[in-house]
Design a protein around this nucleic acid. Structure first.
Lengths: 146, 146
DNA sequence: ACTGTAATTGAAACTCATTCTCATTTAGAA
DNA sequence: TTCTAAATGAGAATGAGTTTCAATTACAGT
């Protein structure tokens, strides 16, 4: 994982008067070790397997911290748990979610972004983030006999 | 509330071999008595107040039934509970949600819809529904000194 | 109208994700 | 090194939603 990124995280901790603990560092590394979506429990279990156990509470607390500081963002994929993705390793994008097999496809569309800005202006609304998710069937699941 | 709509609901129950019970009818009426968003517990409490109590379980079960049959749809408003809105009384639309005061503004934009179709075609994806939500500050909350 | 029966209901127990509590540990400033 | 506020882990608590099961009820067939 990117060394500069880790430094940026340490910086954020420092400038916010938060302690740079082993638990926080290893959760951060775990999250940035891949660019897939994940939920809190996945991180919790991945870390136990790697013998770098932290408590669930700490995973949840650290995720909150990371979201607040823009390192990670919440993604709605229609699941019962909150899903996350790291933000700095990748560009902003939206999601197609297959309701049959769970496959997630990412996409980006500038026209849609522009229209959103237009709409916000019209309503005098100041946007901070957005979330577009399209549910349906992926190519493979369309072929399967239900 | 629209009488034809109620008939349509009764029809749906009938053709699916489900019973037309007082609980189901009053939940249906309650939901269609306004076009606001709501969650399961709101319906539950509104009905107790009106002395038309049904159990929470029945509210949840009936909501599922209504979603499956297209009378109601789930809306993601970033809340911890699932939110709903009735579908037949209003057109499809998206949401602006103020993270400060909770105000919800509805909007509709054909350009965005068209772009979504394009994207789905590109990925061979068959869309069944979508959800666009923009979080931010409404006009009034922008003026307030935090 | 009456009966039989499968669907529906309510109450309470349960699940599951997440949050909270609190006693113990620890990072890092002095 | 010492001190202290911040962070941690373990487990209890919460809250939304689901399940279970015995009792009730809609309604198809008579």
């Amino acid at each position: 994982m990117d060394k500069a990124l880790l430094e940026k995280f340490k910086d954020t901790l420092h400038t916010n008067g938060m302690k740079c603990t082993p638990a926080r560092l290893s959760i951060f590394k775990e999250i940035y070790s891949s660019s897939e979506h994940f939920d809190a429990d996945e991180i919790y279990f991945r870390m136990r397997q790697e013998k770098k156990s932290v408590s669930r509470a700490t995973v949840y607390r650290t995720l909150d911290l990371l979201v607040e500081n823009g390192f990670v963002s919440k993604v709605n994929v229609g699941a019962s748990q909150v899903h996350f993705e790291n933000t700095l390793a990748q560009e902003h994008h939206e999601h197609l979610v297959c309701t049959q097999c769970g496959k997630v496809i990412e996409f980006r569309n500038d026209m849609i972004e522009k229209q959103q800005d237009k709409i916000c202006k019209k309503f005098g609304f100041f946007p901070t983030k957005h979330n577009l998710i399209i549910f349906g069937l992926c190519d493979k699941c369309q072929l399967r006999d239900n």
